[in-house]
């Protein structure tokens, strides 16, 4: 088990390094001159050159990458004298258009994106697994059919269109809800829920159908397994069998997928955040695109990638813990 864990963690580390190198190189090799983007309208060539030196864009690529990595570990100071400024560790760079360190920009968005992802995750798991179980237990009867129709409808919604539709229905048309405006849950819990209700609903409608299907499929498969039949034959209570055997084994693939989905959502719910104008990481990325703010883009890509890798790893570990085959084989 320990060997397995070590291998997985090492591999996750290698993946992260590869992602950072790739991201860094892709952005560095672009035709856009990063130094030219650091100042606005009346930009003189001298000033561009000054900023190039200040931000280190004049150095060879690998040196730049080394400095970037070092910044993550030890923080980084740019320029010298009057124009000097420091971004503390872990430094992901400095954004000229936002006049702030990338790390603090991203840190500010995390509570928002985290709120959306956690709330959405809880809801879609409840609805996904709950309705999936109902579907499996009532298979072929009307609840099953209704649920499967609803899932197809949910699946067919492009995220952005669903978000727009909900916004139109609840905010513009019936005016049941005010325009979402994020507040911290510690400050105003009710306001927090109110602002996030529509984003959560959007994510739940979009994501639940997959979990309904996974649950239903997993349960039907295990319900046909011999050991379950045996349990029922032995006279165990139906609910006990369901809970102890069926649900437990049906949940393993669900947790795997859920871990990956959650990691991806943490990287920024781009459409939900843009449409409901919530200042999360997805929206930060979109803004950075329209500002051609390369340091922020490198930062958000890397942080989002990290979430994916970390949750991949956690899923692997979970898998290793529950599945004896993995433990022994690897």
């Amino acid at each position: 088990m320990i060997a397995y864990l070590t291998r997985r963690i090492l591999f996750a580390g290698v993946l992260l390094l590869a992602v950072s190198l790739f991201t860094f190189l892709v952005f560095a090799l672009l035709p856009t001159d990063p130094a030219a983007l650091t100042c606005g309208k009346a930009c003189t060539p001298e000033r561009i050159e000054a900023n190039r030196t200040r931000l280190g864009y004049d150095q060879p690529l690998l040196t730049q990458y080394g400095k970037f990595l070092k910044g993550i570990v030890a923080g980084r100071t740019y320029g010298e004298g009057q124009g000097e400024f420091t971004c503390g560790a872990p430094s992901l760079g400095y954004s000229f258009s936002q006049k702030d360190c990338v790390t603090s920009l991203i840190a500010r968005t995390l509570p928002v994106t985290g709120s959306i992802a956690i709330g959405g995750f809880v809801l879609w798991m409840i609805f996904g697994i709950g309705l999936g179980m109902l579907s499996a237990l009532k298979r072929g009867r009307w609840p099953d059919r209704l649920i499967s129709i609803v899932s197809v409808v949910g699946l067919s919604f492009p995220t952005f269109f669903l978000a727009l539709l909900l916004l139109f229905i609840f905010v513009i048309w019936t005016q049941i809800l005010p325009f979402p405006s994020y507040v911290s849950p510690t400050e105003d819990f009710f306001g927090w829920c109110q602002a996030l209700l529509l984003p959560w609903l959007t994510i739940t409608i979009i994501s639940s159908p997959y979990y309904i299907r996974l649950t239903r499929f997993g349960m039907l498969e295990t319900m046909n397994e011999d050991y379950v039949r045996l349990g029922i034959a032995k006279g165990l209570k139906r609910w006990t069998v369901l809970r102890k055997y069926v649900l437990r084994s049906a949940l393993i693939p669900i947790v795997t997928v859920a871990g990956l989905d959650f990691g991806a959502t943490l990287g920024g719910a781009v459409f939900t955040e843009s449409i409901f104008s919530l200042p999360g990481m997805g929206r930060l990325s979109i803004k950075a695109v329209s500002d051609s703010d390369l340091p922020v883009l490198v930062g958000t890509t890397l942080v989002a990638g990290t979430f994916i890798v970390v949750f991949n790893l956690l899923t692997d570990i979970f898998y290793g813990l529950v599945d004896p085959r993995v433990r022994i084989h690897k």
Binding site: A36, G40, K41, A42, V289, S290, D291, S292
Partner: peptide, 11 residues
């Protein structure tokens, strides 16, 4: 032209 690059581009 993306807004941030607009003036530098046309100037």
């Amino acid at each position: 032209i993306e807004p941030s690059a607009y003036y530098p581009t046309i100037m």
